[in-house]
Amino acid sequence: MRAGDALPPLRIPVTRTLVVAGAIASRDYQDVHHDPELARRRGSPDVFMNILTTNGLVGRYVTDCFGPRAVLRGVAIRLGAPNYPGDTMVLSGTVEEIDGDTATVKVVGDNGIGRHVTGTVTVTVPAEGVV
């Protein structure tokens, strides 16, 4: 892995089940993440994915790419276009910097209406030790 390397993209179908399961698994009971009627009253066309789920998916994307020995040191994300049910988000990433056993990865996630997430993930991959 070198700076400038691209990570293989990951397609995430944004199902209603994923939106709700992610919200509940993260103990986030804000109505906009499970109740379409109340979401509409708040000006949203439908329920949408909560930030904790996006955070979890970004973390999973990077550890999937770097393998189970990889340890996340930091995840910083900013949300843009919401993930509504029926859409697909494609996560892609680029290694920005390698410092020893630590990589800084720039991650973006695009859906059908724009850029859902922009993030930076710091991950450490310990060198293979003698067993």
Binding site: V32, R42, I51, N55, G74, V75, R78
Partner: peptide, 14 residues
């Protein structure tokens, strides 16, 4: 209404 826009986390210990 409320919407989360940014989340920045550092993990110091598992």
């Amino acid at each position: 209404s409320v919407v989360a826009t940014d989340c920045e986390q550092e993990y110091l210990r598992v």
